[in-house]
Amino acid sequence: MHPDHKYIAGLLDADSDVIDEIYALHANKIIGWVRKNGGSVEDAKDVFQDALISIVQQAQKPGWELTCPFSAFLFLVCQRRWYNELQRRKREKVTLERFSGFEVVDDAEQQAEYALRDYQEFLLFQKAFNELKDDCKKVLSLSWSGIPQKELAEQLGYTYGYFRKKKTLCLAALISLIKSSEDFRKINEE
């Protein structure tokens, strides 16, 4: 296990001391780099937050391990995240100055890419989920909670059959929303 895993563990636990340490160590450098590459402090804030969340999302996956220093991986994700944002804004290829002074293992860049793609997908799914009607949101959230369906049906005052049918219809609506999204097509094209 990489010695910097303590940062990952702290993030997974939402440990405020660890999070504060990460900010204290890296925020300024990210601000400086984003500003140097056409962004603002506000942009740097979004980049930093999204990068940390993306990393946590990867870290939750079974078998995922940090293979390089945490700072190097964080900067890779931030760099990639800002690159994507610039592309989105300008709709053209952009060249960014790379962070210097970090040695990363070969697959770290790919891991950074996956991390951002997964998080982008998460945001897309969340957006689609929020577009569902309230009863659908409730049925789906409950059905994914691990509580037996018969219990949930009773809880909602539905028959078991109706609950199942309702759940399937809501799921179909969600999938349809996701698949019809332009962002979904883009993510799957990449």
Binding site: S16, D20, A27, I53, V56, Q57, Q126, W144
Partner: peptide, 27 residues
């Protein structure tokens, strides 16, 4: 994916909340 992403929702909210204070401080 939908199911696993949905599970991450809670973690994401928790993290965002935990990041509020340092974000205000350092950004």
């Amino acid at each position: 994916k939908i199911k696993s992403q949905h599970r991450f929702q809670e973690t994401e909210s928790r993290l965002r909340k935990a990041m509020e204070r340092p974000t205000g401080k350092y950004f």
